[in-house]
Write a protein that binds this DNA or RNA. Structure first.
Lengths: 368, 368
DNA sequence: CTGTTAGCGCATTCAC
DNA sequence: GTGAATGCGCTAACAG
């Protein structure tokens, strides 16, 4: 491997001192140098293809231009766009991201943040937090810039970028109610996650505003945002014996599970029961039936989170301000919702039973 | 932000010299230290929560325990499992990954590898290479450990981990031929990518071994691994007027596009024409029709690539050996393949025309 | 076995 | 405006 060219090499080539080169290369201190000398230094340094040694820079300045990104699982389709948004924004400012997966495991999260801190990250973007995450609050209070994406912690001191859950539920319920549904069930997400509680709260709120059936038996709470829990909760709802013609799910995976559960029971979606998701994951427009859902702006969320974080990093700790950004969402109406059938007819049910043979949900775990 | 505890702090607390602490903390040099002293140092250092300063370590040793991972686009579902495999392996050895997306742009790839080199990465894992990528060959010859995943460069000097394309095509063609198809079309991938050429070569090879129709008109070459190209190639095949009852596609996205194109023409899959994919992307088991495809071991590929890279890093440059690992693949038979219909009947075509109204392919670009 | 010394490449304070 | 000197925290060669 070729030897790297250092400031010293450039200094010797130009015939000036190292510190002069250092100043000339930094836009902030360039004005201290005679214009011609600076120009010459710049020229030679590009000729020699000089690159600042990141380790030396970090050791000296205590800044790494590296930020840590923590997600539950990069394999969950919700996260790649967020990460992409983060990286695009970071790259524009010469920062890079180091990435880690927690699998929703609290202990791993702690050990990861410690590793990242040892690496001297300038900040953290967390997509994996639970509502009561004290470790994050503490790190944040210690002065480490942190912003959460997609989710947030209850502590309002930690900056966040989230989607407008209230607006999303309003759109979904408005759509479903508009189709004529009066008895709408809800599969809520884990209440340890802000997305879970916010969407449940919004569901209840707009359900009441719209005058829909508010029987608490119409709500089932999932323990995770995955297919299996969608299946379990749908079965639970069906077994309770309360009548409903639509199920609003707190995310797409729950909806996929719920749809599969209906199918197994010989019920058709949307003929017998409408189902909605949340997130608009890739490919849900190609499912059978194509899923009506809420599109959230994952890329923008990541981009914005990185933007806020960089701003925090460049602001002296005492002047830093927490920020909470809420991004707008869109309703995607597809095939999984329809007007409630008056008859709940046999013919329909028979037809849908034929489909019931189709595959069970993949057993991929997921959280968001 | 609390002040970080350094070797010096530990040394003072224990009452020994910094270098003693340094040695005691490194498993490789620990044996040089009296057992009791070492134990005491270990104890104090955990009490104080000492963490090695990564920048100082790097500056001194010229190693960063950081490796660069370059993918075309993390948003393409093929890559997250690979990345996850890489990270899990790296984490086990105390390494971290920094990630960047090229969007298949050669210039970006070069600039990214330069950035990474400036950051002093210990090695590179490239999922984005084209066959004739000279920049990579050069870097590799310069002594920078590099391994490509999923794809490979033509230069055999660069280590790689790929899937068994020949076996995959053999499985697919065996399955299709076994169903009774004699005239099998192929939508091949971009020939600038090793996956594209390898799968095409394998297709031709096994087509001939099986005695299938070898009309060159049955092959269409896509310019990218995405839905639109799948549509375009399927239409091209149909417009050529050659008869076929199955289309073998070089990846899942092409297959999705091809299926959509058939549908628009009022043709049903698999009733009129069978379609196969390649990769077994998430969710393709839930499409309509669920896609018959080849499952490749993305996670394992990433894991193995990281493993090889770490081994290279720990081997002195002159003793390093190139390695080429080929991972086995599996056939996933689902609903998109069936025996060829003798009649190509009107009734069938009418029925499938009803489905033709369904959504067009999403306009997401993709490469693999 | 342990302490001493040097220096990795850089930014920055202090002289001039 | 520029050069000289210092030290960030660590490892490694050398000395004892």
């Amino acid at each position: 491997m070729k030897k790297r060219v250092t400031l010293k090499d450039v200094a010797e080539a130009v015939g000036v001192h190292v510190s002069t080169v250092s100043r000339a290369l930094d836009p902030k201190t360039r004005h201290l140098i005679t214009a011609e000398v600076a120009e010459q230094i710049l020229k030679v340094s590009t000729e020699l293809d000089y690159r600042q040694n990141a380790a030396a820079y970090s050791l000296k300045t205590n800044r790494t231009r590296t930020i840590g990104v923590v997600v539950p699982d990069i394999t969950n389709p919700v996260f790649p766009p967020i990460i992409r948004g983060i990286e695009d924004r970071l790259a524009a400012s010469g920062y890079v991201a180091i990435l880690a997966n927690t699998d929703g495991n609290r202990r791993r999260e702690v050990s990861i943040t410690q590793t990242f801190r040892a690496r001297g990250v300038d900040g953290l973007i967390m997509a994996s937090v639970e509502r009561d995450d004290e470790a994050i609050s503490r790190l944040s209070q210690d002065g480490l810039p942190i912003v959460t994406v997609n989710r947030q912690v209850d502590d309002p001191g930690v900056s966040s970028v989230v989607n407008d859950e209230d607006a999303g539920m309003k759109l979904i319920l408005g759509h479903v109610a508009g189709l004529g549904h009066q008895h709408v069930a809800n599969i809520a997400g884990p209440q340890a996650l802000s997305t879970g509680t916010a969407r449940l709260r919004a569901f209840e709120h707009h359900r009441d505003l719209l005058g829909l059936d508010d029987d608490p038996q119409l709500i089932a709470v999932a323990n995770a945002f995955n297919d299996e829990e969608g299946v379990r909760c749908a079965e639970e709802l069906l077994s309770r014996g309360v009548a409903f013609t639509a199920i609003v799910c707190s995310n797409d995976r729950l909806a996929i599970g719920a749809t599969a559960a209906l199918r197994r029971r010989g019920l058709s979606c949307p003929d017998d029961i409408s189902v909605t998701g949340y997130n608009d994951m890739p490919m849900v427009d190609r499912l059978f039936p194509a899923l009506t859902t809420i599109r959230v702006q994952q890329y923008d969320a990541g981009h914005e989170a990185a933007d806020i974080l960089l701003e925090m990093i460049e602001t002296p700790p005492e002047r830093r301000r927490r920020r909470h950004v809420v991004l707008p969402v869109d309703l995607m109406v597809r095939e999984s919702t329809a007007a409630p059938s008056k008859t709940q007819g046999r013919a329909r049910r028979a037809r849908s039973a034929a489909r019931a043979a189709m595959a069970d949900p993949a057993t991929m775990p997921a959280a968001e």
